[in-house]
Nucleic acid binder design. Structure first.
Lengths: 340, 340
DNA sequence: ACAGTCTTCCAAAGCGCTTTGGCTTTGTTG
DNA sequence: CAACAAAGCCAAAGCGCTTTGGAAGACTGT
């Protein structure tokens, strides 16, 4: 059942039917009623291929998915996706993933924009002066950055959490508890979120006349194994830290294992705070010692980004609006006063 | 730059240019050369919207993503996606995710097929007599099931791992080591994979005149917390099992925690084997006691499915070919002889 | 009653590609 | 050399929708 047939059986022109269906004003409400009704009765659904050829709109949002033998997709992605789906589901928005060689994302962005394959894109895990942000900004497609880039001479729309504030608060708490030697087990420090977290931690220390020693900072891909390695390295040093801030729950698993292997205890010998993106399958309160966290639901962020992208597509949102969400500090058993 | 312009500057008809570009035989090779050359030089890329309106082919594969407030996307999905991307990346295949109310996937399948939004779909986490499989089969779109359904009067193409064989082997090993009371911590037992694993385990036990007691079987969503709960329940019983087979590495984390909480040890008091889908961020060899596993890379499965879908789209693969991959049993420190 | 203004609808022109059917031109064959 | 086939190319008709530029009829005010 296509427009032509529908129009014919209504004894109307395609124009009128099309307009009636799409809510244009120049059609009699009574006629619109008839059209809507017939459309529903016959299960008419406009052909999206035709519509997109005519309008250039696809009703989809895009994400360039960096892949490659040496590239692992972040498990956080699933949670983000859940959130995106939460919104998209009720708005008939689809998401198209364009897998791309991680080193050549630019070509793909250009392609999907030139081809009008999607109406908007989002960018995740941005770095300072991220070339993707600059590119997409000039390409003129609606977009939102999940996270933040830095060092541009233009503004752009983003949604980020207050990573700096989160780790600032976490560190402040630890310092208050008497800790003097803090350590940071961070994610890839080429990414902005990691930079912000380190900054927040440093700022809190500086406020008390303390400093973060370089040897107390680790920056690694966020796996359990790397958490373990980092923690061992830190804790086996002379002048080992008495408190660790950790950028991920998965790494924290490794940290806990390392602490145990070394015959130490949490929080007796070392306090631990990790960032929690809120996974349904791994909860900080269920760690052998309940884990203190800085918490922010990445799933909610996914939903919000879908919402904002939809708003941008339909022109309801404009300009370079940045949105920064506060992060909860949730104190549980894994922090205590510094050992004497 | 569109076809019309390109044809005009080559002083050829659109027909010929189109045919030259798409490898049709009725065009002189010399002409084809000229066309190809000019196309490349001017960076001509056919407009996919137009092409798909004309051909009905979209160059995308689809996945209906069940979502909802109570629905969590499986973290395995990310690894599967990595694999899919590994193949898709080099073949300009995009993946479109259609988020859908988990209870109403059928509508979405009908929609994406009716709309010709994608050229093929895959289905994951199938259950016996899964309605999605039956539906998609009748809709006539190329598809592959990741996993297996059962109880149909038709065959269908799938890729699955030998879950039954895997858990059969695992159980056989445990029995050989003298274990008499095995337990199973399984995933959602409405899904085929879980049924197959239980079947494999039962079969191995039966071969030695043993049986799997109902109270020794747990079926839960695969989270760390559920692993913990299940293990506690099992191990606090009278006649507690001396060996546990577990369907997921994430649950195994919880099992290990429970064992520790109960003052027991692995493998002294209880042996543990888990299924490992191979995550980059959580490795069985790094468990406090290295974990024995049945191992099969879900990422490779993703790549293979993409490959087969592409083959089906282009007509290279036909019929209801089922493909079952063997599963490795990797023995590490978490299994030992049954306690006396 | 007449010009002017809405309101409501329509015919037709795209959007950019593929594909059908046919027309030349060249080559082959008896 | 006429007859036929094959090779190489083209014009035009879709694919199914949106949108432009009117046109006809109904309504207004004078």
């Amino acid at each position: 059942m296509n427009l032509k047939q529908l129009a014919h059986m209504l004894a109307l022109s395609q124009t009128t039917v099309s307009r009636a269906l799409n809510g244009y004003p120049e059609v009699n409400e009574e006629t619109r009623g008839r059209v809507m009704d017939a459309a529903k009765r016959h299960g008419y659904r406009p052909n999206p291929s035709a519509r997109r050829l005519a309008t250039g709109k696809s009703g989809m949002i895009g994400y360039v998915l960096p892949t490659g033998a040496a590239v692992d997709i972040d498990p956080h992605f699933v949670e983000f996706l859940s959130g995106l789906g939460d919104y998209a589901r009720s708005h008939e928005l689809d998401l198209v993933l364009s897998p791309t060689d991680a080193d050549d994302q630019e070509t793909t962005y250009r392609r999907i924009v030139a081809n009008r394959q999607v109406d908007a894109v989002y960018i995740s895990s941005p770095r300072p002066q991220d070339s993707r942000v600059a590119l997409v900004n000039t390409l003129g497609i609606p977009f939102i950055v999940h996270g933040r880039s830095e060092g541009f001479d233009f503004d752009y729309p983003y949604l980020d959490i207050d990573n700096e504030g989160a780790f600032h608060e976490a560190a402040r708490l630890l310092v208050q508890l008497g800790h003097r030697r803090l350590a940071l087990i961070n994610g890839d420090d080429r990414e902005t979120f990691a930079i912000h977290r380190e900054r927040g931690l440093r700022r809190a220390l500086a406020a008390s006349g303390l400093a973060l020693e370089d040897r107390h900072v680790c920056s690694l891909v966020m796996t359990e194994e790397n958490g373990y390695r980092a923690a061992r390295r830190l804790l086996e040093q002379d002048g080992a830290p008495t408190a660790i801030a950790c950028s991920s729950l998965i790494m924290a698993l490794g940290v806990v294992r390392a602490v145990r292997d070394l015959g130490l205890s949490i929080p007796g010998d070392v306090s631990l705070i990790a960032h929690d993106d809120v996974f349904p399958w791994l909860k900080p309160e269920n760690f052998s010692v309940p884990l203190s966290t800085t918490r922010s639901s990445i799933r909610l962020a996914g939903a919000r980004i879908a919402e904002r992208l939809a708003a941008r597509i339909s022109g309801l949102e404009e300009g370079a609006r940045g949105e920064v969400w506060p992060v909860d500090l949730v104190v549980r058993g894994s922090v205590a006063g510094a050992p004497a």
